[in-house]
Design a protein around this nucleic acid. Sequence first.
DNA 1: TCCAATTATACTCTACCTGAATATAAGGCG
DNA 2: CGCCTTATATTCAGGTAGAGTATAATTGGA
Lengths: 319, 319
Amino acid sequence: MDQAKGTRKSRAGGKADTAKVDLTAVVVAVSNNEPCVLTIGQTDTLPSGPLALEHRSLQSGLRTWVEEQTGHPLGYIEQLYTFADRDRAGAELERRVISISYLALTRKEHATAPSRSSWQSWYDYFPWEDHRAGTPPMVSDLLRPRLIEWAESADDDATRLERRRRAAIAFGFGDRPWNEDLTLKRYELLYEAALVEEAMRGSTLPPPVGGKSMVSDHRRILATGISRLRSKIKYRPVVFELMPPAFTLLQLQRTVEALAGRLIHKPNFRRLIEQHQLVEETGETSTETGGRPAKLYRFRHAVLEEGEVAGAKLPLSRA
Amino acid sequence: MDQAKGTRKSRAGGKADTAKVDLTAVVVAVSNNEPCVLTIGQTDTLPSGPLALEHRSLQSGLRTWVEEQTGHPLGYIEQLYTFADRDRAGAELERRVISISYLALTRKEHATAPSRSSWQSWYDYFPWEDHRAGTPPMVSDLLRPRLIEWAESADDDATRLERRRRAAIAFGFGDRPWNEDLTLKRYELLYEAALVEEAMRGSTLPPPVGGKSMVSDHRRILATGISRLRSKIKYRPVVFELMPPAFTLLQLQRTVEALAGRLIHKPNFRRLIEQHQLVEETGETSTETGGRPAKLYRFRHAVLEEGEVAGAKLPLSRA
DNA sequence: TCCAATTATACTCTACCTGAATATAAGGCG
DNA sequence: CGCCTTATATTCAGGTAGAGTATAATTGGA
């Protein structure tokens, strides 16, 4: 501690209390009922860049980098989390790297310029997170046995029990319900169990359990973004950031389902949307749905002005 | 943007993409039904210190600083927000300052060493946030007229309407309900209206509207912590971090009320606690309450292990 | 001693919210 | 025309939350 105090006083000079600050964005869009994240290059890398002095704020720095790297101007953004794991700093660096991550919601059509960015489905990175068609086979056939194996490999009974319990809660084993919000917890558990590629860099041991990995800790950041978004759609009307100006109620439902990774009871979904007056009819209808034409709706922007007081939430309340 | 790109390439050398990183803690305890925050010195300053290379992580750096400055080892902590306002950097500094803030919950008794720290009531800094005895007079008599004045001073009708609406939502004017979670929003509104001291540093204009201010942006950080905690007690059993090992249900209720700044319907509170099985009887009773002796309870730590799946939430759902 | 004040604990009633199922309407298409 | 598909409306039961009321067990004082 005295050491730490020492570094404080030397703030003007040394590298000890100086850091490189990186801004990283999880940019989300949904199209064709598939939730996507924006990556740059062919390298499974999230848009990011160092905070610089000419940036007026963290947010404006982030917007600048993302627009430059991907051609997407950002609308809605919110801060996610700040990471500073030691292993983020390459061994050759004498400086720590801080990574401030943001969640951004947009639509693919908003791109203004072609660029070397591309959209990837969430579920390419997290195949165990899509429960829209029921529990994915890979969960029961692959993850579950590997996690049980991991639990059993613990040294003492208490740890074994604890690991089994954590896995059961996170993945909904046994008769427990699956909770879509726990994306980050699930990823961290798989990391701890060394079942994802990132956890075993430099190792030669058993192969990872599935899902593309990403550069450095970007998959963890993506998991953080998914968790946050899945929670948030339940109590704030943020889905509409991902919708076109006019949409049918089923399109809206499918978008929510894509994000949540689970299906919703249709009549109840409509009831909630209507009773919270989140939308209003445009007067038009769409016949492109195969059956009876559906009314088109637009988001009632007034709900944003009505304050967080009133409901303004979406279903998915609990499994 | 080209400019920004330029700085990126020069990352190895210049000061442009280098920053000083500060860790700041909002340490909360409740005693005598008063929610308190830990400050150092006599200067209304939150415990804080620069992140240094020898810190294993952000959290451990924070724990080190707080323990050194206040003698309080920390238990529960969670990250709040990362700030990087330009005006945080003193004009003389060529480097940006990043401030990563945390919320910590503890009990005053946990102090291990005497120190130059002290506990201050939240409501000394935010007198408009305590609605336990009804809406405070200062809100109706002082804040409301000043906010209306501010709204009216806008240039155009749209802005005037917008300002009145925002004030009404944030403070629950008219027939709107008061929402205790909006602490940060209220502070930001007062800041924007230049009704708090921090907003008018260097100005000579009308006096601020009340409440002690803090060093630099520490009052904003405290507001962030209060907002987060007031939201969180509704869906996670974090209050128990602030309780002694054994307590009566009324003590528990008073603690929640102290945090929320509003009163709770007693029978409903007990019902919720019991039906979520958050506590278990110790078998003892307490007669120090003046009337009929009250059963003593302890927190059922098992609920933490039962996963965020089950309820585990507290009342205060909506006004 | 016994009453009054104080707090603890238990019970009830109603409105609303939620999950789930069912019924009817309006298009396309062979 | 009749069938398939999707849209839209309605109903029912269980649970939750707000609010009010009743009874129990102490202390302190008349």
